[in-house]
Design a protein around this nucleic acid. Structure first.
Lengths: 113, 113
DNA sequence: GCAATACTTAGGGATTTTCCTAAATAATTT
DNA sequence: AAATTATTTAGGAAAATCCCTAAGTATTGC
């Protein structure tokens, strides 16, 4: 992805990978070091660390170096941007109340024929 | 992505692109043809149609050929899988009640030092 | 100090993604 | 029937993604 991605781009893209969702599911339970997080994934460490980087770039996790370990946590309100966007769209969709807008739209289309 | 992606993989990945989110935002308001949807995007039609394909593969929209047009709609419950996953994680996170789990985890780690 | 541990950096390869142009097809409209 | 409209198919280039190995660097335990 390009250098000019919005939070939502980064956030949703990060969530689109199963390895990264597993990491988040793990971190929802408690903080953990990079090594602990990597364990269940049969993947070379450098590859795995890239996933952590993407999660952090998306604002989904934070991490801090403690001694030789890197401790990761779920970011506070990590999921808010994504949830808010989804909720907004759902609300707009539901406000259409039985496709009333479509009814009007179609009516007007018929008129212009 | 591979041929064996889960709904969540496809769904979140589809949402990770601004063009595709714009399409969904448009469709939350009313159904539209491929051409109508493409208009605001300065992009060759074949490129644009690929975005529609991804949204449909992710179960976010449905489409139907009507005459020479392809009419697209938001899929019913399009956002449920994504919203559900996000909500589940938020719940688990919030259940930790002021980092109580972390407190225990850290206590045990200290013990094992 | 020396070895072990926990990453981190560097570089590279296969696949996927995101865009393009050109040409084909299918359904109106004239 | 011929032209126009609305895609659709085919093929391809550039960049991003996701994985790897090999070789650092920094911290900790002996």
């Amino acid at each position: 992805m390009s250098k000019f991605d919005s939070t939502l781009d980064l956030c949703f893209s990060a969530l689109g990978d199963p390895t990264r969702r597993m990491i988040l599911e793990r971190l929802a339970r408690s903080e953990a070091t990079a090594g602990e997080l990597a364990e269940p994934h049969s993947m070379a460490l450098p590859s795995f660390m890239e996933h952590l980087k993407k999660l952090e770039a998306a604002g989904l996790i934070t991490s801090e170096k403690k001694g030789r370990t890197r401790v990761c946590q779920l970011a506070p309100d990590a999921f808010s941007p994504a949830k808010n966007w989804l909720t907004e769209q759902s609300v707009i969709w539901e406000e259409r109340l039985d496709q009333f807008d479509d009814y009007i739209t179609n009516l007007m289309k018929e008129k212009n024929k």
